[in-house]
């Protein structure tokens, strides 16, 4: 009986101890610096970081939100982005100016909020310096702009 019990408990231990990390995420801190927008913008510029794509096969999806922060238009900015390495592919920076300060990009009836974007296909741990985000388009959604900027 005790030998059977010992074997059973050993099996239970093996089964229990075989479970390791349910998820193992690697994040690297990516230093971003540069400017966004023109001096004539009277409002802060919202910068949003996205993966260019996530998922595989039929579940592959364009752009996926990572982080957002605000910068002063035309002033040099620096920001440390926490970029999860295996969550998706590439990096897309989307910038927009909330002209009417309603917290929404181009709400119904608004069609003059400037936007701009930048694609970085293979970000590494190397800092991305001297980024220039020009807000030269009006009221385009991040996914649409990412698609338009695709080479």
């Amino acid at each position: 009986m005790y030998r059977t019990l010992q074997l059973g408990l050993s099996a239970a231990f093996l089964v229990t101890s075989s479970g390791c990390w349910s998820s193992d995420t690697v994040i690297f801190e990516l230093a971003l610096s540069g400017t966004a927008g023109d001096a004539d913008l009277a409002v802060p510029v919202s910068l949003e970081a996205y993966y260019q794509s996530i998922g595989e096969g039929i579940l592959e999806t364009d752009i996926f939100f990572i982080d957002a922060f605000e910068v002063v238009a035309s002033q040099p900015f620096s920001h440390t982005l926490s970029y999860p390495l295996e969550g998706g592919r590439g990096l897309f920076l989307f910038a927009w100016a909330d002209q009417d300060q309603d917290g929404a990009l181009c709400a119904p009836g608004v069609d003059d909020e400037p936007v701009g974007g930048l694609r970085i296909d293979q970000p590494t741990e190397q800092p991305l310096n001297n980024l220039m985000l020009t807000l030269d388009r009006l009221c385009i959604s991040p996914d649409q702009l990412a698609a338009e900027l695709q080479p």
Binding site: W21, S22, T25, V26, I27, F28, T80
Partner: peptide, 15 residues
């Protein structure tokens, strides 16, 4: 469920 996050910080070797 145990989740591990390794953050590689700027200017350091260790995560």
């Amino acid at each position: 469920l145990f989740h591990r996050t390794q953050t590689r910080q700027i200017g350091t070797e260790q995560a």
